[in-house]
Structure formats: C-alpha cells, structure tokens
Design a protein around this nucleic acid. Structure first.
Lengths: 264, 264
DNA sequence: TGGCGGCTTCCGCTGAGCGGGAGTGATCCC
DNA sequence: GGGATCACTCCCGCTCAGCGGAAGCCGCCA
C-alpha cells in the first residue's frame, strides 16, 4: 500500500533543510538512519533526499556508507559574511601575534554571540567557542560588551528572559547584570572569569560601525592570567580602531548577512 | 489557468539547491528576479522557495529587498572540513608569521585545487585565490605539487584534457608539463611565476597523510621575489612535517568531506 | 543456516507544488 | 499628476512529484 499515512503540511524544502541541520549537532558522520531520526522523516524519504543532496555535493558519502556535509555547501558558504571576516582577519591575526592569546571576532545574532573568526596558536587551550558557533551573551566577554553598547530595547529584551548558567560563576541576576553592563559601557571593555567554562577567562572591547555597535573582539586566556588581563587593553583598543577604519566604507547590511534580530 | 506548462522532471530539491548555487557566481546580493534567472525558475516558484529559505535563515533579506546567503548556511558549513582546517590552522599561521607572506592550505577536489585556508597580512597583495575557491591545478604551485605526488591515473587523467591558460606564462604543453611534474616529484617542491596572474609567484610543498598526498601548503609572493623564494623552503618543509604529525591520527575520510574524484 | 539491522528499491495514491496571471506599489519621466 | 515601467507578491484549481509502507537485499555474526 502507498501514500497512506503521510504527514501533510511539511514542505519538501523544509525536509531538505532539516536533513542539513541534522548535521549541526553531531560531531562526525551520520548513517542514513541517524539522519532520518534527527530530521524526523521516514527512512525512504530520507534516503531519496539524501541521495539527491549527495549528487549535488551538498552531502558526501564516506567509504563506510556514512554521510557528512559536503564540500559544495562549505564552498558556497564562504561567500557569507565574507566582507567582515576578510576585512577584519589580518587585524585579528595581529591581535593574536601581539598578545599570544586566542583572539576572537564575534557579532550578535538574535540573543547569542556568533563567532565569526578566531586566531589561535598551536598550544592547547580550553575553548568553548568555535567559528560558526554560538554562546549566550551574558557568559562571554564579547557578548557582554556587545550587549552593553546595544540599543536599550535589545538589552531589555535580553534581560527579560531566564539567563542560563554554564558555570557557577556566571552572573545571572538581572539587576546585578544590568549594573555590570552599565559599568562596561562606562569603562569601555568587558571581562569574564570562568563564566563559560572553568579554567579560562576573557576580555573584550567593542567594534563600532557607523556609530552603532557592530561587533566585538576579545581574548581568551587561562584563569591564571585573570588578574593581569587588562594589560592587553591598549592592543585591543588599537586593533578595534583599525577594524573600524577598515570596515567603515562597507555598508552594514552586507557585512554579515544576518538580520540581527527577529524583530519583524 | 494553472499548472499548465510546468517543466516536469525537476525535483523540488534541485530547485532549492539551484537557488542556493545562484549565489556562487555573484559577488553581492541578488534580487528575486536575478535569482529566478540564474536558477532558471519561474518567478513565482522562486518567490515561494526563496521565502521559505529565508524563513529558515538559509537566505537573508537586506532592507533593500535583495537576498544574500544567510548565516545559517555558513554556521552549518563550518563543520565541513573542520578537522583538517582546525588541525592545520596554527601551523599555516606560523608559516605566515615566519615568512611574512600570504600562506595557503589546499587540497585536490576533482581536477582543481580547493583552497581550505589562507593566512595573510594587512598589506594588499594581488590574490587570485580565496578560501573556498578553486583554481586549475596546473597553474598553481599547490596544484602542481599535489598533482606531482598523486597516483599515476589521476595525473594521466588530468593531462588528458585541454589545459586552460589564465596567463601567457602558464605551462600547457602536456609533454613538458609531465616532465615538470617529474622534476617536482624529485625536488620535493613546486613553483610558479606569473602563471595564475601577473605580478605574483608561488612556491609549495606537499603534505602527506598515511603515505599518500593529502594536501599542500604554499606561499604567494610578488614576482619581484621570485628569484629568492626557495629560501622559504626549509620553513615550508618544517611546517609541512608539523601538519603531517598533527593530522596523522585523523582518518583521511573525515578530514575534508570531499570524495576526491568522481571515480565511482 | 538463520536471524538481524541497516540500506535500497518498488509502486500506486494524493496533496504539495506549480505557475499564469492579476494585484500592488515604488520609481521615473514627460 | 498621470501613466508607463518594473519588480515583487498573491491567488487558485490542476496535476504529477513526492510519498512512505513494505518487500527485497546484503553483510555480519553466531
């Protein structure tokens, strides 16, 4: 028998995208069954769509039969947000060279910080973030500094939610956090100490664009350096100014390709 | 009237992917009409699919109504090829720091070199490549060195085609080029002088993985440095050895996510 | 040898997708 | 200001692409 218990109202497009998103949470390659489960599609439907995606190079199949996101997807996506990343990259690199610490460039995307670029050395550091990854704003220095300089309504909307708590050191009291943001705005930089994960602390400064907060750059260091991390402030501010200069002529909308909030 | 002259045999999936690929060739944002033309779809169909893609964040809409690839696509794609890029990044960076020249990491994808990573300074250099971009193998140092160390059948298949000629200096005689590859294999590195674009030259060495050619690292310099570029060879070889060590434990298949050829 | 788990293929039913065309609204030029 | 143009949005009934249960297949293990 056929075509019986289909789930109506689900578009093909949404199924295809759900399959691609199934790979977001997983580290390695997925079997067909894994994909079907994650995307909540029948196996035969998954099979058909996955095959077509693989034909187009959007998925790739390993010799063992498992699937991974394909290189075509990555190639295409290199165009996204390229303007900001390309323009800022050399300066983020300088930031790393001058400090020897893991350097980040991040923007706000909805209620989270989105890491756009990262430059780091070969020494192992405990890292919570990755390029293309997201973290809560109130737990990271880049996030705090962006939030501090955002429009009031963004900040209010953010505080008007339950703030999650990755570690015991994360500040989650809305009142105290609002005060902290005010102080950050005044002093021009933000710090965290073991608020995302134990063992690391961070410091960040804002990057402005056409008078508004556009992004943030920051450093992550081992907690042992926490007390002296403000010594990197002059470098951070200098690099920030250079990025501001380098991106000034690029219209904000084309910098990233995120509508920054879901306000519409 | 409705549903009359549809073009049958084109799957929804293929339409969605065609829309995404429409952005590959274009620099900036596209209007709905542009997308419809590039993907060869009726306007109303394009409209429907584009809207759904935008809802999912795979496309983003600028205030002026034009569309760009969305940030979701980019986020997802960060997982692709991450193993190789993440493992190699610090070393590619060292390569740049130690030489002061634009440093590249590339692999073969079909008959082209695919640039996986690039580290460069803030000084303007004429650059033909970009991360996620492709170039012909016979015109680039990374491409030549990969081809030189590839299996015979890959090399033979490559030479058995018309080689395109980006500049007048590009080597396109199959016989001579085969000899050049033999010499590259012997000397352990490849160079180009103005073979991709005038004004720049390059030098590259292989990066092996489980005894086979896996990738290549290279430098791009102004042509004026062409005569002395071999002085970077010790650094190139040292960095290559480090990358080989850092990637040795990662299975080849998971490094990139490309089936390297269409041999199946 | 038989059972199992995962992948692939088959096939007739049906609603998601289709796209022409009409509606809208911004822009430009006379 | 009006009317021509252009680009996007929406509507709606027809129809075929997609659907997915089930059967088949294949490799593995005991």
């Amino acid at each position: 028998m056929a075509g019986g218990s289909r789930e109506p109202g689900r578009t093909v497009t949404s199924k295809v995208l759900a399959i691609l998103e199934a790979f977001e949470t997983s580290r390695g390659a997925l079997s067909l069954t894994d994909i079907a489960e994650k995307s909540e599609l029948p196996l035969s439907t998954t099979h058909r769509l996955v095959n077509e995606l693989a034909d187009w190079g959007f998925l790739s199949r390993e010799p063992n039969g498992r699937y991974q996101l394909g290189i075509r997807l990555w190639e295409l996506a290199q165009n996204t947000g390229r303007q900001l990343r390309d323009a800022a990259r050399p300066y983020v690199q300088d930031l790393f060279s001058l400090t020897g610490e893991t350097a980040h460039l991040a923007v706000r995307s909805g209620h989270e910080v989105l890491y756009i670029d990262r430059v780091y050395g070969s020494k192992r550091v405990p890292r919570a973030s990755r390029v293309g990854g997201r973290l809560p704003m109130h737990a990271t220095a880049v996030g705090k500094v962006i939030l501090a300089f955002e429009d009031d309504w963004v900040r209010d909307a953010y505080l008007d939610r339950n703030l999650e708590r990755p570690t015991a050191h994360t500040h989650i009291d809305p009142r105290k956090f609002a005060d902290e943001l005010a102080q950050i705005r005044e002093q021009g930089y933000a710090t965290t100490v073991e608020e995302v994960r134990l063992g690391s602390c961070s410091i960040a400064v804002p990057v402005f664009h056409t008078g508004r907060i556009g992004a943030a750059i920051g450093l992550v260091l081992p907690t042992s350096h926490a007390s002296t991390m403000t010594r990197h402030l002059p470098v951070l501010k200098g690099i920030s100014a250079q990025i501001e200069r380098a991106t000034a002529r690029i219209p904000l909308e084309t910098l990233i390709g995120v509508h920054r909030t879901g306000r519409d």
